[in-house]
Design a protein around this nucleic acid. Structure first.
Lengths: 207, 207
DNA sequence: CTCCTATTGACCGAATTGGTCAACAGAAAT
DNA sequence: ATTTCTGTTGACCAATTCGGTCAATAGGAG
């Protein structure tokens, strides 16, 4: 991140980061207008280009910063010794909720970046994606204790089903949050609601 | 649909419809360029505006036509007497696969339309969406035999989990299809693969 | 009063947009 | 052979929007 930008007060930094992420997530790289970003962030056009040399650098800086933030949190806050799939995904969900609280659009932004293919950023982004996948993100999700599942269950497909269920739940929650301000969202209750679905899954899939 | 357009040979019609749906699905209403549509469809700019009076009419005509097509097929091809949730969703999946075969982008287009909010089409689209929801699409998915589930299961949440699983499966399949031409896709095999997941779900959730 | 740094927003050339229309191709009719 | 007609083309247009610049300003520090 640019040193000039880092010298800003945290609140103003976050306002700019959130505005940029929101626009990029909603419209993709090409169709995001820097005019909308500065309007959203409440700063002038000139200032944005004072901090970031151009639109492309802004986008890639954003991507690098939030991938690293996410992976660092994952490494730090999740107990990787615990191989129970539900316990692990519950921890990841809790972490995502916490990050969502500070950066509302972080996961929409990162997801959108995963399928971004504008000419201008495609090559730079692809090499970064490889790095991200290899980091050990894949194994993070796959190093699971399979002995807890019922004997005659197709465990691989069952694990897929569990992940799809949690994703579906996350998607449903986000739709529910739409339009609400961050303060109106009851994060503890969201986690409690997730536990109700986990209970169904555990009861059905575990011995 | 415009009579002039309907007089065209089916193949050319479909080429134009598919091209328009693809672009609208990928970029949304506002950021879809009619230039790209005609390029994709292999026709001239003038011809597109010979068939459709303007971009907005093209978009709404497309939406109306494919919503109706989908609902008509649903009404016709699904056995609504069968209240088994797996059997019902399997029938719907089979129908979607068939439609996908002719109009590759139909569901991406319809899904994108669901969250479309460009000024130019917002009001017209919103009234159409209400109509669609009310038609009886909701009850189509909810009139399910709940007596087959295991006694102490939270049936409502279980049903949500089943739907999320099928959606997750569909999403995974579509990612796998990406880049392949229609002819290369083995539709029977896709359905067989779905059955393997249904088997896991049925075994776990049914008595 | 003078620096100095942070910030502004009017402005620019370039690109792109939805939509038009005079012209054309070529089959059918005269 | 000539006219008519229908389907089709793509160069063209005014309008808008874009990323990026830069001279001008504000306002605190010295």
């Amino acid at each position: 991140m640019e040193p000039k930008f880092l010298a800003l007060e945290q609140e103003k930094q976050d306002r700019i980061l959130n505005a940029a992420m929101k626009e990029f997530a909603q419209n993709g790289y090409k169709n995001t207008s820097t005019n909308n970003i500065v309007k959203q962030a409440g700063i002038s056009k000139g200032l944005l280009f004072h901090y970031f040399t151009n639109k492309k650098e802004l986008y890639l800086t954003l991507y690098d910063y939030f991938v690293e933030l996410f992976l660092k949190e994952m490494q730090l806050k999740v107990d990787w010794e615990d191989k129970d799939i539900f316990s692990r995904h519950r921890q990841i969900a809790a972490l995502k909720i916490k990050l969502f609280h500070q950066y509302e659009h972080i996961f929409n932004f990162l997801n959108a970046a995963m399928s971004e293919d504008s000419r201008e950023v495609k090559s730079e982004l692809n090499s970064r994606k490889e790095k991200f996948i290899n980091h050990n993100y894949r194994e993070m999700l796959q190093d699971i204790d399979r002995s807890k599942f019922k004997e005659d269950l197709d465990v691989s497909r069952t694990i897929e089903i569990i992940i799809w269920s949690i994703e579906g739940f996350a998607y449903k929650q986000q739709a529910k949050f739409k339009g609400l301000s961050i303060e109106e969202i009851d994060l503890k209750e969201t986690l409690r609601e997730l536990d109700r679905y986990i209970e169904v899954l555990k009861y059905s899939f575990y011995k």
